[in-house]
Amino acid sequence: MSDTKTFVYINRKAPYGSVYALESLEVVLIGAAFEQDVKLVFMDDGVFQLTKGQNPSGIGMKNFSKTYAALGDYDVNQIYVDEDSLKERGLTLDDLQPLVYEDEDDDWAEKDSIKLVTREQISDVIESADVLLNF
């Protein structure tokens, strides 16, 4: 496969209560092996997927939130979080787990993967997609 495409994954649902957040993470990690340009968007209740201190033991679900920290190692480092969605839910960037990657073009400096964006900027991200998957 020679051609590189931009894959955009939109995450709009809470981490538990439906299977979509877990499945999205699964596809992103498997897709990383295909060396495509990958962007993740978290908006609406999807912003809860990145919150710190998740504990779903009371509902008998696995806590998969620690897996997000591995995304940087898979070269998945373009992570867009909708600022309005955070605000609407009384959250700030500090409520989210930090996601970082090592920039190989900058002497492997550790950088933040998460960018807070407006809805207008999210439409630009969507516009850039060759393949758009909605979870």
Binding site: M1, E26, V27, I30, G31, F34, Q36, D130, L133, N134
Partner: peptide, 21 residues
Amino acid sequence: SGLGQLIEGGVQSDRLLVFGD
């Protein structure tokens, strides 16, 4: 088969169309 087949489909096709949510 595995999810890789979905990604490969996205890479190889002109359009990936999703039916259902």
